[in-house]
Amino acid sequence: MIVAEQKPLDEIKGLIAEAEKVLVLGCGTCVTVCFAGGEKEAGILATSLRMASKIDGQPKDVTHTTVQRQCEWEYLDAVADQIREADIVVSVGCGIGVQAVVERFPEVWVVPGLNTSFMGLPTEQGVWEERCAACGSCILGLTGGICPIARCAKQLLNGPCGGSQNGVCEISKELPCAWQLIYDRLKSQNRLHLITQIQPPKDWSKSRDGGPRRITREDLRLAAEASE
């Protein structure tokens, strides 16, 4: 899932300072399950903003609503009226959700309520860790299913480096060395030969280095005449 966390309330207050009628727009997908921008969090943020603006002596009309997925225009259309009626929309979706609202309603003023952090998973209740950096050419098949791009501080393809000490990465005592994890996993699976193969430099053009990416599936596109 995409993992995010809410911006400090003061920062959000600054973003909406000039608006009167505020809509906090939640998203029912990734940010709901990482407790950053779902129905509950949108409600908490809207309530907090109402209370703060009242205490500051300039009460704002802050409401909230949540759509199933902010990153698909069809879901946004369902709340189009609420979006257009607001002076400002505080999106508590991920950065994609914010931009989806902006693209669908170009005339509307939209600001982010979250900092989108990474793609990861909950390793225990209340703890999320990064797992994938969307590099565009997945090598998990060579690394025992452990990603060195997202989890090794140096994104090494042929690790570990000399900084790996007793299973811990040199950048933090809290961080397991990804390549130690890879070694341990491959060893337990009797596939250590994989780690001895030297990996050539990675094709980073498939990652962000190649500029913004786009995927097109001709078989899924609506026929030109049908969509016109």
Partner: peptide
């Protein structure tokens, strides 16, 4: 109703949610 105590239902359609 719908205050999201258990989180929004992922089965919700936009229309139903509205």
């Amino acid at each position: 109703e719908g205050s999201g105590d258990v989180g929004p239902s992922t089965q919700k359609t936009p229309a139903a949610h509205q």
